[in-house]
Design a protein around this nucleic acid. Structure first.
Lengths: 239, 239
DNA sequence: TCAAAAGTGTTCTCCTTACACCCATGA
DNA sequence: TCATGGGTGTAAGGAGAACACTTTTGA
């Protein structure tokens, strides 16, 4: 069977429609550890089960728009780094109905989210490395999203999406160490990072992490956008 | 709105289902140029329009299974390199009906395909760099797939999926030159390639490309699989 | 004998890596 | 004054990039 002719309803009619949902793998970084925003049922049935935050894709929106809507409804945030991960469409993935899900992963700054909105939705932040079992194939989604994050962060400085807009180099290093679960060398990390010329040094220090204080930087989004389109190598280290 | 409770049909009932299709971006390599397998309507209506090859996703199969089925039905091939590209779900993407598509790209050896099966389905190979306009958002799909192929081929030797099982190094180089649209240095290409130790040299020569003839090689899939799981850097050149 | 493609080595440069000490400050 | 985290430089090794000629053989 090949692609049906378009604009002729007869070609669609005999086909079966499916439920289409989206699930968001929402990463955050807090207290030196990677966290995931999940939905914990507080009432029966299935009280206590943990799932990703998602929604059906409505007729008036694309999957990406649905995912953005979910993120906005739960966290109050807009203009967030979000990318399609992949689709999940195994026949038996959802025992309740034939339902495919298009998963998106997002990186957000926890402190910018609307905490009461989050709480009102029954959403909570859990540490990634002590995650309990999630419903359906959501565990697999998280695993896939983490793999993708690791791949992506090798070549693109997306880590900055997880930190405050003003951040210190030690903070960024701790984030990378959390993502890749390994210690890095301070000197090499700084050298490579600064050689990209994508950080704007500020005249402020963050005094929360040490007595000496660490200089704050801002990410140069404008410069990055220009480089990105030209295809730049952002690799922060050798694998 | 958060994720509905599963196993309770009431949560699905009020939602609208959508048509779910899959489209395949099928790459081939022949006569030194990259080609795409497309479907050309030979009868009215819409005679002459060109689209990717696709199908609806049926209730009994996942999107990936649907894509594999399409590939098998059109080319007779199984066990082909195929990966999910991304989903396309813009509300107005298909004027005929609200229909999302999950696109997959595949790399096949043209000479192994069932030529009459291909022809019977009205499928034809078109050169990638002189593609006409495709229906719907299929042009965008091809562009995205090509970007993905370029990204992927940098780090994984997937090019071999497009060549005969026995191939010569000059053939592989020509393929890479076609993918990246740039000339490469023979000596550096061979050096890097052979240093991966993934090619099994054969005692045969391919005499079709030159009077001198070029030695044939086979790809060492077993070794590759082992390296792949350990996370190896297959980059064939610096971007 | 010549045209056309296959095959081969070396040098330079740059990036990555490994590695250890001083600095600033608040407690 | 001392404990804590912030910040700095250099040398060695390895990978990528640039570069030109010889080999084979059918026409």
């Amino acid at each position: 069977m090949t692609k049906p002719i378009h604009h002729h309803k007869d070609y669609y009619a005999p086909e079966e429609k499916l439920y289409v949902a989206t699930d968001c793998i929402i990463f955050g970084f807090d207290e030196g550890v990677l966290k995931l925003l999940v939905f914990k049922r507080r009432v029966e049935p299935l009280k206590g089960t943990i799932s990703l935050i998602g929604s059906f894709v409505h007729p008036v929106e694309s999957a990406g728009e649905a995912a953005k809507r979910v993120l906005r409804e739960i966290t109050g945030l807009e203009d967030i780094f979000m990318e399609e991960l992949k689709s999940y469409s195994a026949v038996e993935r959802d025992p309740g109905a034939r339902c495919i899900s298009i998963a998106f992963y997002a990186l957000i700054r926890i402190e910018e989210s609307n905490k009461s909105l989050v709480a009102n939705h029954g959403a909570i932040w859990l540490e990634l490395d002590t995650l309990p079992k999630l419903v359906l194939d959501h565990g697999q989604m998280v695993k896939d999203a983490l793999d993708r994050l690791r791949e992506k962060a090798k070549f693109y400085p997306i880590g900055v999406e997880l930190l405050s807009k003003k951040f210190t180099i030690p903070q960024l290093q701790k984030l990378y160490e959390a993502i890749y679960q390994k210690k890095m060398d301070t000197r090499n990390f700084r050298k490579k990072l600064l050689s990209l010329n994508l950080l704007i040094p500020l005249d402020e220090k963050d005094m929360s992490g040490s007595k000496k204080g660490a200089f704050l930087y801002k990410f140069n989004y404008n410069k990055y956008k220009k480089l990105e389109t030209k295809g730049f190598n952002f690799s922060l280290f050798k694998t």
